[in-house]
Amino acid sequence: TRVETATETAWISLVTALHLVLGLSAVLGLLLLRWQFPAHYRRLRHALW
């Protein structure tokens, strides 16, 4: 049971790290898009909202 718990903890930390990385890359990508294509971003936002 001790090994299982350790594996579970490792998986949880791995998944958390993955989610953090994905979230950060998504935010960075959005910022980059907004910085590179302001007109396109505004049009996209206008279409979405």
Score class of each variant (00 low, 15 high):
Ala10Glu: 11
Ala26Gly: 15
Leu22Glu: 00
Thr9Cys: 06
Leu30Tyr: 13
Leu18Gly: 12
Trp49Thr: 05
His40Ser: 13
Ala39Pro: 06
Arg43Glu: 04
Pro38Ser: 09
Gly29Ser: 09
Leu28Gly: 14
Thr7Phe: 08
Val3Gly: 01
Leu18His: 03
Leu28Pro: 04
Ser13Tyr: 14
Val21Cys: 07
Arg43Asp: 04
Tyr41Asn: 03
Ala10Phe: 14
Arg42Leu: 11
Ala39Val: 13
Ile12Gln: 15
Ile12Lys: 14
Glu8Pro: 07
Leu24His: 00
Gln36Tyr: 05
Thr9Lys: 15
Ala26Ser: 06
His19Glu: 15
Ile12Trp: 04
Ile12Ser: 12
Leu48Lys: 04
Leu18Asp: 00
Gly29Trp: 07
Leu18Glu: 02
Val27Met: 07
Leu30Gly: 07
Glu4His: 06
Arg2Trp: 12
Pro38Lys: 10
Arg42Gly: 11
Ala6His: 02
Phe37Cys: 12
Leu33Lys: 01
Glu4Ser: 09
Thr1Pro: 01
Ala47Phe: 12
Val21Ser: 10
Ile12Tyr: 14
Thr5Glu: 01
Leu32Asp: 00
Leu31Cys: 10
Glu8Thr: 05
His46Asn: 11
Leu30Phe: 14
Val21His: 00
Thr7Ser: 09
Tyr41Met: 13
Arg42Trp: 09
Leu48Asn: 01
Leu44Asp: 01
Leu44Trp: 07
Leu14Ser: 07
Gly23Pro: 13
Leu32Lys: 02
Ala6Gln: 06
Leu32Ala: 11
Leu20Arg: 01
Thr5Lys: 01
Trp49Val: 05
Leu22Gly: 11
Ala6Leu: 04
Pro38His: 10
Leu44Arg: 02
Ser13Lys: 14
Thr16Gln: 06
Val15Tyr: 07
Leu31His: 04
Ala6Tyr: 05
His19Lys: 06
Leu44Ile: 08
Arg43Gly: 05
Leu30Trp: 14
Phe37Ala: 13
Val3Ala: 03
Leu33Ala: 08
Ala26Phe: 15
Ala17Gly: 09
Thr16Glu: 04
Trp35Phe: 11
Val3Ser: 00
Leu30Ile: 14
Leu28Asn: 02
Leu30Pro: 05
Phe37Asp: 03
Ala26Arg: 00
His46Trp: 03
Glu4Leu: 05
Leu44Val: 08
Ser25Asn: 04
Arg34Asp: 00
Ala26Met: 07
Leu31Met: 13
Leu33Gly: 02
Thr5Ile: 02
Ile12Asn: 03
Ile12Asp: 06
Thr5Tyr: 02
Ala47Thr: 05
Leu33Cys: 14
Leu30His: 02
Leu31Phe: 14
Tyr41Trp: 13
Arg42Gln: 12
Tyr41Ile: 12
Phe37Ile: 07
Leu48Met: 13
Arg34Phe: 14
Arg42His: 10
Trp35His: 09
His40Gln: 15
Arg34Gln: 02
Trp49Ala: 04
Val21Ala: 14
Gly23Glu: 01
Gln36Phe: 11
Trp35Thr: 06
Leu14Val: 13
Ala39Ser: 14
Ala47His: 06
His19Met: 15
Leu31Val: 14
Leu18Gln: 02
Ala10Val: 11
Gly29Glu: 01
His40Glu: 11
Glu4Arg: 07
Ser25Trp: 05
Gly23Trp: 06
Val15Ser: 13
Leu32Gly: 04
Thr16Ser: 10
Leu20Val: 13
Pro38Thr: 08
Ala26Asp: 02
Leu31Ile: 12
Ala26Val: 11
Val15Cys: 06
Leu20Gly: 13
Tyr41Phe: 12
His46Phe: 06
Leu28Val: 14
